[in-house]
Design a protein around this nucleic acid. Structure first.
Length: 426
RNA sequence: GGAGAGGUGGCCGAGUGGCCGAAGGCACCGGUUUGCUAAACCGGCGUAGGGUCAAACCUACCGAGGGUUCGAAUCCCUCCCUCUCCGCCA
């Protein structure tokens, strides 16, 4: 959400700056509603002023035991005017708010211009691509052959786009979660958080999932709860409606949670394996920072996520998303893409974004420097990393000619010293 | 799920129809005093919207929403949340 002053005073400039990102925004409607709102507020407040003063006078008359019936009759009229005008005001404010919430964030000036994924800019690459003396297999092929991933069983107990990890398939995810959490906590200064994975409507609105993307989330109608699509939602909302003190910043939180996504509209894409499933685990990094520090923090956050890939020795590249590929709430995003041998392609495994004040204004998260007015802080988050996709990358990059998979060295301590995954007996 | 109690400013806490945006205390900030610290004293101290060059000023907010009334923190209704006891349960 944008600053309300910006929406009333500088709507045209916002429209120009957003360019094609704002093509679905009803600019003229917003302009009209905004004008109407301002006029109505002025009138309503004026009437309320009359009512208030008149009532005070009646109070005095009554105390002096003087008659006040005439006054009361006049004020009854005033009250009725206020009531009808408030209805008008509400009829203006509700759609105005809905529309305002549907305006995407403004990209930072360093974001490459472009209309689609192909215009994203490669920032750097890391690692050597693996060479195989055989045709590398897909992760689902390997996983099923090794007996550590079972997709038919997942379909039986839940449906399409679910997975079951068995034996090393389950343990590998657990090891990865612990490895990532430990690294971020011990070396990157993050504090671990274990949040609820069911959240209310206000939280989903605060981080930008609602109202526009309600179809993407799983909903529990009996309680009006939503299953979180990412830990970003509960963790960012920890400070919804709060005013922090400057010296509390920066706040850096890491959370390991399951994530739930309906994947509506992605029919036919990545239908096999772990790449795109309804439920997956992710370690998420969430930062609350002073506005002046948010771009330094974006670099720091991205490096923290990259460290995981480097320690796992998985080749990847860093992409700066172009204006056309940027998410709704983000001002700037770096995607980390890991190499997948079976696809001969880099695939997204982490997305690190600076939201500037966009989420903070929606979620009303502010900070105060002593003696100054509260102001909105900046929020950032990034995956560090998506665990399911990390499993995909490990299986594919570490596969051997005999169908076994070597375990990355840094994970071995988390797996009781196991060095490789071979075919299981059961 | 059943029964009861309660939600007031950063915190504690008074306030049951007007003189209440809200006493008092704590915390915090500025000042006076004091050999230092402490104490004492004086003053300041919420958020948002409108308005203004800026101010003055105006409006709203006592869990949320609605109602009664000339006037609501206070009365009525609905909802949410917290706490206590019982039941159930990892």
């Amino acid at each position: 959400m944008h600053d309300s002053r910006l929406l009333s005073d500088q709507l045209d400039s916002l429209r120009t700056q957003l360019g094609t990102r704002g093509k679905d925004v009803p600019w003229d409607t917003i302009h009209t509603l905004s004008e109407q709102r301002r006029n109505l507020i002025r009138q309503v407040e004026d009437l309320r002023h009359q009512l208030k003063q008149g009532s005070d006078r009646i109070g005095q008359l009554k105390r002096n035991k003087e008659p006040a019936d005439d006054q009361m009759a006049v004020l009854r009229q005033v009250r009725e005017q206020i009531q009808s005008m408030e209805l008008e005001l509400r009829a203006v404010e509700e759609p105005l708010r809905e529309h305002a919430l549907s305006i995407p964030n403004l990209p930072h000036q360093t974001v490459p211009k472009g209309s689609h994924e192909g215009d994203n800019e490669e920032i750097r690459r890391w690692g050597d691509l693996p060479h195989f003396s055989f045709t590398p297999r897909t992760h689902f092929d390997l996983g099923e052959a090794l007996g550590i991933l079972d997709f038919p069983k997942a379909t039986k107990i839940s449906g399409a786009r679910f997975s079951v990890g068995i034996g090393m398939g389950a343990q590998l995810e657990r090891a990865l979660a612990n490895f990532m959490l430990d690294l971020h906590v011990q070396e990157h200064g993050y504090t671990e958080v274990l949040p609820p994975v069911l959240v209310n409507r206000a939280s989903m609105t605060g981080t930008g999932q609602l109202p526009k993307f309600e179809d993407d989330a799983f909903h529990v109608p009996t309680e009006d709860f939503f299953l979180i699509p990412t830990a970003e939602v509960p963790v960012t909302n920890l400070y919804r409606d709060d005013i922090l003190d400057t010296n509390q910043l920066p706040i850096r939180y890491v959370a390991h949670t399951p994530c739930f996504r309906r994947e509506a509209g992605s029919y036919g894409k990545d239908t096999q394996g772990l790449i795109r499933v309804h439920q997956f685990q992710k370690v998420e990094l969430v930062n609350f920072v002073h506005p002046e520090q948010s771009y330094d923090e974006l670099e720091r956050l991205t490096k923290a996520a990259e460290t995981i890939l480097q320690k796992l020795k998985l080749p990847y590249r860093v992409m700066a998303l172009c204006t056309g590929d940027l998410g709704f709430s983000a001002a700037k995003t770096y995607d980390l893409e890991v190499w997948l041998p079976s696809q001969q392609h880099y695939r997204e495994i982490s997305s690190c974004s600076n939201f500037e004040g966009f989420q903070a204004r929606r979620a009303n998260i502010r900070f105060r420097t002593k003696g100054e007015k509260p102001q909105f802080l900046h929020t950032l988050n990034g995956s560090g990393l998506a665990i399911g996709r990390t499993v995909v990358a490990i299986l594919e990059n570490y596969q051997q000619a005999d169908g076994s998979v070597t375990i990355p060295q840094v994970l071995q301590p988390y797996l009781h010293g196991a060095v490789s995954i071979g075919p299981s007996k059961t």
